[in-house]
């Protein structure tokens, strides 16, 4: 199972990604949300390991942090990490979704210095939040805008042809979709229908490539080394069963 270039199921995304996050000491509740975000990524035809491995690496290397603060600025809110690190997308994504639930639709939200913006996008998608625009400029100065048009449809508008999963280190802005008319210049537009994309994924499985091995390695940290004693007694049945 640990090899690259596999086709996995959505249930395996849930199983392995939850535990991969837990493997870098993310609390289990956040780990579950992280896995559900990755299911949404996979349902829409992306390799979930592509952006998620970087986010887990950042936490493991202490380049990012789960520490988060919130401040209210007039009509907008602001999430940031008060440590001198990236704000981990694993924490940013759940906090954003929670904020969307408790805020009014006209409010704006800024999130500073997020390490993996597409994970924040995927959390919004996984929680079926619609009528929102998420925009950011990444470290390569590429502009991205994701519009959640309704529960079925979303789109990516970007100034770059680079995979959106790989964008990193960005200040993000979340606004009402209808209030936003700031389209990136030289845009590439890609539209998605969640139902159709999910159906395709259910019939074909989820392709994971070279980053999968890293996800599996973090997952493996949740496994307990087997000893002669635990092998003999931990599962309750004998080593040979004949009758």
């Amino acid at each position: 199972m640990s090899k690259s270039d596999l086709t996995i199921s959505l249930n395996e995304v849930l199983f392995y990604f939850t535990r991969a996050a837990f493997g870098v000491n993310v609390p289990i509740g956040l780990s579950e949300d992280f896995a559900y975000s990755n299911i949404w990524i996979a349902e829409n035809g992306f390799d979930p390991s592509l952006c998620s491995l970087e986010a887990l690496n950042n936490l493991d290397n202490q380049v990012s942090s789960l520490a988060i603060k919130f401040e209210k600025l007039n009509e907008s809110g602001h999430f940031f990490c008060h440590e001198d690190k990236f704000l981990s997308a694993l924490e940013a994504s759940v906090s954003v979704v929670d904020w969307i639930e408790v805020s009014t639709p006209t409010d704006e939200l800024k999130i500073s210095n997020v390490d993996a913006p597409f994970l924040v996008v995927s959390a919004i998608g996984a929680n079926q939040c619609s009528g929102l625009t998420v925009s950011w400029v990444d470290q390569d100065k590429s502009q991205y805008q994701v519009n959640f048009i309704d529960n079925e449809t979303w789109e990516i508008i970007s100034s770059s042809v680079n995979p959106i999963e790989l964008t990193s280190g960005a200040d993000m802005l979340i606004t009402s979709f209808y209030a936003n008319d700031n389209i990136p210049q030289g845009s590439n537009i890609k539209k998605f229908n969640v139902t159709k994309a999910t159906l395709k994924t259910l019939n074909n499985g989820v392709q994971v490539r070279e980053n999968w091995q890293g996800i599996y390695d973090y997952f493996s940290r949740c496994l307990v080394k087997s000893s002669a004693e635990s092998r003999a007694s931990g599962a309750g049945a004998g080593m040979v069963d004949t009758d």
């Binding site: 940290r221 949740c222 307990v224 080394k225 087997s226 000893s227 004693e229 635990s230 931990g234 599962a235």
Partner: peptide
């Protein structure tokens, strides 16, 4: 409760006896 590295076999451990409390299933 934990998963063993042995084919991910689920196992039931006793604290102070078995290793793996840190990897306890939630």
């Amino acid at each position: 409760w934990y998963y063993s590295e042995d084919k991910l076999e689920p196992r039931f451990g006793s604290k102070g006896v078995d290793e793996g409390v840190e990897q306890e299933m939630p």
